[in-house]
Computed example of a mutant assay.
Amino acid sequence: MMTLEEFKEKNYGKRGNTERDELEAGYENFKIGALIHDTRLEMGMTRHNLQKK
């Protein structure tokens, strides 16, 4: 069993490597989207409601 950090280093290289930096940036964007999604659902909003705000 390996840690997530070990997996990323093995498959994408160390931080500072272009491929790894792209992976990390994509993950940050995913987290922001997931937070927006969860908050929207907690507030009982649809995507359409959110778009209007």
Rank of each mutant, 00 (worst) to 15 (best):
Y12T: 12
Y12D: 10
A25Q: 08
K31G: 00
E22Y: 05
E28C: 12
G44Q: 12
A25M: 04
D21H: 04
N11C: 13
G26M: 10
K53W: 12
N11F: 15
G16I: 14
K52P: 13
F30G: 00
N49G: 15
M2D: 07
N17A: 05
H37V: 11
K14R: 01
M45H: 09
Y27C: 07
R15F: 06
L23E: 09
E24Y: 12
M45Q: 07
K10N: 03
H37F: 13
E42M: 12
D21C: 03
L23K: 10
K53Q: 14
A25K: 05
T3R: 00
Q51E: 02
G26K: 12
M43F: 01
K10P: 02
M45V: 07
G13A: 14
M1D: 01
M1S: 00
L41W: 12
N29D: 09
A25L: 05
M45P: 04
Y12A: 10
I36Y: 01
E6R: 09
M43T: 05
R20M: 10
K8C: 14
F30Y: 01
K10S: 03
G26H: 09
L23W: 11
R47L: 08
R40D: 02
T39L: 08
I32H: 05
L50A: 07
E19C: 04
E28D: 13
L41T: 15
